[in-house]
């Protein structure tokens, strides 16, 4: 009943249960954070706009991105994954979402930034539907915890209309 093995087993079970419980509490405490993130994304220029040999439209954009995501950080935050996506509708697809740029923010100090950058991932449509197409720019973030549940959020920017002709 009170052998060494029995005691070790009890101690280990208790320690693991406690650790799991604390992980749960840490994850739950994220709910008390009311973040007030700020973000602004604008298309400053169209580098080029073409139809690929395969028949798909492709556009290259220059983006102005500024954001302050410091309030998203809590003590249980490992990092924040932030990305800007173009979201639009075409006759073929009811929903298209293309990530144009992303970044991993490892700490609160790096969560306030302002950059001027070309799209990191290619903006290619399925088909040739981009001329004159209007799309929404949305900044999404995924807060990755040290332990527990992942939280996500987004801010939708004003739309942008692509030119009617290739260039």
């Amino acid at each position: 009943m009170h052998s060494f093995g029995y005691r070790v087993n009890t101690l280990l079970t208790f320690a693991i249960t406690l650790l799991g419980f604390m992980c749960g509490i840490a994850s739950f405490s994220d709910n008390f954070n009311n973040p007030t993130p700020f973000a602004q994304v604008q298309v400053s220029n169209i580098n080029w706009f073409q139809k690929q040999p395969s028949g798909n439209d492709e556009v290259s954009l220059k983006l102005n991105i500024s954001a302050d995501l410091q309030s998203l950080f809590t003590w249980n935050t490992k990092q924040i994954f932030v990305f800007v996506a173009a979201e639009y509708e075409t006759p073929k697809n009811g929903f298209n979402q293309i990530s144009l740029w992303d970044r991993i923010i490892p700490s609160k100090e790096n969560a306030k930034f302002s950059i001027h950058i070309s799209n990191k991932y290619r903006f290619i449509d399925q088909g040739s539907n981009l001329r004159g197409r209007e799309f929404n720019l949305t900044m999404h973030w995924h807060v990755m915890p040290k332990t527990g549940k992942t939280n996500a959020g987004k801010l939708v920017m004003s739309g942008y209309q692509l030119p009617k002709e290739y260039r």
Binding site: F83, N93, N96, Q97, I98, S99, D102, Y121
Partner: peptide, 28 residues
């Protein structure tokens, strides 16, 4: 949706992969 971390199986690969979605095209 983009940004989500999904676990997927590829034909001919035994081990599933955990990666993030960057592009989505959905037929209406």
């Amino acid at each position: 949706r983009a940004g989500e971390i999904v676990v997927f199986n590829v034909d001919g690969r035994e081990i599933p992969i955990v990666h993030r979605v960057i592009k989505v095209h959905e037929r209406e």
